[in-house]
Amino acid sequence: HGSKKGNKIIIDIETPCEKIKKFSHMEVPMTEILDIKNNYVIDKAQEANCSSNCLVPCAVLNLCRLESGFLARSLAKKAERLSIEFKDV
């Protein structure tokens, strides 16, 4: 869940994952989500020892960009839902 409050994006994540729980509540400064290398969300994910293939930090960044207006809601609505499917070969 995410919502804009002043110049921050408030993030709350419900998860059974112990690593994600370590940063499941964040107040992300809007100015610290634009750079992919040096940003608040990635820093918190690194502190929690998330693996490099964890999708949650990327999802949180996209949520922050939506809530802050850096990513158009109309563009996100066109996609409706993003998913990764694993098929047995």
Rank of each mutant, 00 (worst) to 15 (best):
E80K: 13
V60I: 15
T31L: 10
I42C: 06
S3M: 12
T31G: 13
T15W: 10
S52N: 10
K37I: 11
N39Q: 11
L63H: 01
C58F: 14
K5V: 07
N7F: 08
M26Y: 04
F23R: 03
K77F: 08
F70M: 01
S52Y: 09
K8M: 05
Q46T: 15
K5C: 03
A48L: 03
N53A: 07
I11T: 09
M26A: 05
L71M: 10
R73I: 06
S52E: 13
P16N: 08
T31Y: 12
F23C: 03
P16I: 05
K5T: 08
L66Y: 07
E47L: 13
V60Y: 03
K5P: 00
C58M: 03
C50T: 08
V56G: 00
E67T: 01
I36Y: 11
A48Y: 10
I36M: 12
S51F: 07
N49K: 10
N49T: 03
K37S: 09
V60D: 01
C58R: 02
I84W: 11
F23E: 07
Y40L: 02
M26I: 05
A45L: 03
E85T: 08
K22P: 04
I20P: 05
K4V: 08
S74E: 15
C50I: 02
M26N: 06
L82I: 09
E14H: 14
N62F: 11
K44P: 00
L34G: 14
T15K: 02
E85V: 12
A48V: 04
